[in-house]
Nucleic acid binder design. Structure first.
Lengths: 356, 356
DNA sequence: TTGAAAGCGCTACCAC
DNA sequence: GTGGTAGCGCTTTCAA
């Protein structure tokens, strides 16, 4: 933009908004305060061994020139230098689950003086690979990954090279790395058992793409409970490939209008539960068909009936992820750890509706 | 961590997880493929003027060494080089408003091959200043700011130096910069007029800290309507300084138990509306006291009664912010623009309750 | 089409 | 305490 900028020290004109002014470097600060580059470096980095007088002179020059430290140049020369940046690749930052996770991770990162690069994958494997490449090119100190790919061999070299990486919500496949996940099979079992205990035998399940780990695990939990309970499997009650609330709502509409509708619904993710509730409400069935969701979300308690869910403690997951990541960044090279968090049933009403 | 790493070309041992291996540089790639540094640079940057044979040799070496381009070193020497990173400082990334905003900004950024550093300010001015400093030190290409400070003079030098900056949700004070905001006074007026039109004369308002621009603007809109309608101001109906849903709920509890309770409530932000609704529900007043909120949020339509709100089109705000920011990054130096978006009333039920 | 040398802004190392 | 010099990994400039 401003290839023709004269060197800063020669620029005497008033700075204008239209012609950006060159950014001051340490060299400029050194010149203005009449000391060497190295001394400025010492002051800027708060290193000892600078007399109070010199320090003050330098600091005045820093202020006068609006000097801003260039961390990239700094880190380039620094030995084991960190960039003070981590990357977080989640599924959809606007979803309350990813957003809350990001927030608690951010809190841990801030305590470590580290910034967070955040991005959404939307279940697109190619995007994941491209974004990881970008983060590595930016030399992030660590990586938090809720993978969209089914296997992560593409990460092998980076992991071997020691890039601190923590998988969250989904386990790594094809590589070994730290992870913080929820026991989805167990959670789904609890949810469906709860429905069976209320007397339900026609229980539908709403599930996302079968390529998504958590989705298939929850589906498995559902099937296991039916089998144990001696309820014959009915494939018409299993709806998979649901990508959003609208699709879930449509599925529920179809199910409820069929010859033998379900008396209960297990929704495999919070947005699918919301879609289901919306349709049940529209059909006037909100108080007749039981619903249990996976993932808690704000306002679930304010619905009518209030929504029964399997709650994952998102704040706990996020801080656990952060703790693990920064212990790796600090140099912990012990074998990969798999933290598994148990979801808990929160009974609020919708899951306690009995079959008619 | 691994100060003692031998140079990569001499490292013949199998890489182990416990002893991280040095990262390959262009020099290593040049050595392995038998060409000069500059030629590798050409290949990596997809510059023309390299024969197919050489290009392929270099690419093989890149793969074999797991070479990853160091964008920081690259940008250091590059002339008007961008870092391909922007910063977004919002109030609370886990709040649906900030989260959705971040998401739509992210989508614009991705189209521009740019990563987003995101952080929450939680209305803490000091944190804002520290984070901006950090972002500038990282040489972000641009900045999106939902300020926590009341004045932003501290940004003057950066703005003068040409740092592309877009304020969102709140206007800049003490400096001039692009902004995308909602007309809060107008929005609040619409909301309260709606309640007056239903026949309400005892309308309470729930507001955040008076240091927050948007909060005071919405409060002003509320007062203006009462005055025009000839409804005497009653300071007991104005509750400010509410920082979260719990505080809002408490305030509503107090209001409703007073000698002359309100028949309607205007909540100045989505979380305050939620707190209000929760309390009204608990008091059995959800269908007796009218509520209009500011900011729409997921599930507002599923409450009972469904919540009437002033909706800000968050996706529009986010993409507008992104568009503005990247036009500045591309070199647009026209005078600062102030984009003002009008919120719209979404009547769903809670705001149409009439006084008893 | 290819390469050698200088330099981006900064820190490490060692001298004074 | 302070400063010079080399060099981080890369791009630029210019010569071959």
């Amino acid at each position: 933009m401003s290839e023709t900028d004269r060197p800063l020290s020669g620029d005497q004109g008033l700075p204008t908004a239209t012609r950006p002014v060159a950014r001051a470097t340490m060299k400029d600060v050194a010149a203005l305060s009449g000391v060497s580059l190295k001394t400025v470096s010492r002051v800027v980095n708060r290193e000892p061994g600078v007399s109070a007088g010199v320090r003050e002179r330098v600091e005045r020059a820093v202020t006068r020139l609006d000097y801003s430290h260039n961390v990239h140049a700094s880190n380039l020369r620094r030995s084991g230098g960190r960039t003070g940046t981590i990357g977080a690749l989640l599924q959809d930052i606007s979803n309350s689950f990813s957003a809350s996770l990001l927030r608690s991770l951010e809190d841990v990162a801030r305590a470590e003086d580290t910034a967070v690069l955040a991005a959404s994958l939307d279940e697109e494997p190619d995007r994941e690979i491209a974004l990881v490449r970008g983060l590595v090119a930016r030399r992030v100190d660590g990586l938090v990954l809720m993978p969209a790919t089914s296997r992560q061999e593409y990460l092998a070299a980076e992991l071997r090279a020691g890039l601190p990486t923590v998988f969250v919500d989904r386990l790594p496949h094809g590589v070994d790395a730290d992870s913080v996940t929820v026991d989805n099979v167990l959670g789904a079992r609890h949810a469906v058992e709860h429905l069976v205990r209320q007397g339900h035998r026609r229980i539908a399940v709403l599930s996302d793409l079968s390529t998504i780990q958590t989705a298939t695990e929850r589906l498995r939990g559902y099937r296991e409970v039916l089998q144990v309970a001696g309820i014959p499997a009915d494939s018409t009650l299993e709806v998979a490939g649901l990508r959003n609330p609208e699709a879930a709502g449509e599925a529920v509409r179809r199910l409820c209008r069929s010859a033998s509708p379900p008396t209960a619904i297990f929704a495999g993710r919070n947005d699918l539960a919301i879609g289901a509730v919306r349709t049940l409400r529209a059909l006037g069935l909100a108080h007749r068909v039981a619903v249990v969701g996976f993932d808690d979300f704000p306002l679930a308690d304010l619905l009518d009936p209030a929504l029964t869910v399997m709650r994952q403690n998102v704040a706990q997951i996020g801080s656990e992820v952060g703790r693990l990541l920064f212990s790796r960044i600090a140099g912990d090279t012990s074998p990969p750890r798999r933290v598994i968090i148990e979801p808990t049933l929160v009974a609020r009403g919708s899951g306690e509706i009995r079959p008619t």
